[in-house]
Amino acid sequence: MCGDGGGTKQEFAQSARFAGVARNLWDDYQQRFAPVQRTLANTLLMDGLDANRQADAAADTVGKAFDAQRAGFDLDSSRRGLVLTPEQRTAADRQFDLGRASALVANRNAVRQGVLDTDTALVGGGTLSSAGRGIQMGG
């Protein structure tokens, strides 16, 4: 056999053909699949930054919504002639702050879960364009 240092010309020729097939497969991989894998890996790595940016934008929106809700509460109270005692004001502020914190956490988790779901779909065989990235991979 060829592996023990000896062998026939036919065995050497067969080994050379197998080596050629292996080189062709490697070249094909490098040309067709490696660029797609690099694009996918870069996209998945950038998602951490993208998720944080989206979560920050969502947090800003939630903050504005709660500020508007608090201002509306204060305006409605003053229109009705209601004056809250310091204890009532503290309780109302606590309720607003708890609602805001809860909404912020839920919003950030939803954004991160959405990014994770998209990445899972990509790794599972989806394309970037179907995941909302606007980039078509493969071809």
Rank of each mutant, 00 (worst) to 15 (best):
W26F: 11
V105Q: 14
L49P: 01
S129H: 08
Q10C: 01
D27Y: 09
G138R: 04
G99V: 08
D93C: 08
T39W: 02
Q31H: 11
T90R: 15
L75I: 07
E11F: 02
A57D: 13
T85I: 02
A103R: 06
R108W: 00
L128E: 02
Q30A: 07
A55L: 05
R112Y: 08
D76A: 13
Q95G: 01
G7V: 04
F18H: 04
D117F: 02
S130P: 02
D97Y: 00
D47W: 10
L45N: 14
Q30S: 05
R108H: 06
Q136F: 10
A110G: 03
T39L: 15
G48Q: 12
G134H: 09
G132M: 00
N52F: 03
D60N: 10
R79V: 04
G134D: 04
Q69H: 04
G63F: 00
V105K: 15
A103Y: 08
N107H: 10
Q14F: 01
N42T: 03
F18T: 02
V115K: 12
G5T: 01
K64N: 14
Q88L: 06
G5F: 10
D56Y: 13
G72D: 06
L82C: 02
A103F: 06
K9S: 08
D47L: 04
K9A: 10
T61F: 05
R79Y: 11
L122T: 02
D117M: 07
D93K: 09
P86I: 04
Q54M: 11
T127D: 14
G7K: 01
E11C: 08
A16N: 11
T8M: 05
M1W: 05
D50Y: 06
T43W: 12
D28V: 12
E87D: 14
T120D: 00
A57K: 15
Q88P: 02
S102Q: 14
W26D: 13
D27R: 12
T127F: 04
G99T: 07
G63L: 01
L25T: 09
D56H: 07
Q31V: 13
G7S: 03
F66W: 13
R112D: 00
T61K: 15
Q37N: 08
D50Q: 12
T127L: 02
T120L: 06
A68W: 00
T39G: 11
A110P: 03
L45M: 14
T90C: 08
R94Y: 05
D67Q: 12
G48T: 07
C2V: 12
F66N: 01
N52L: 06
L116S: 09
L25S: 06
S102I: 03
T85V: 00
V111E: 02
L84D: 00
K64A: 15
R94D: 12
R38D: 15
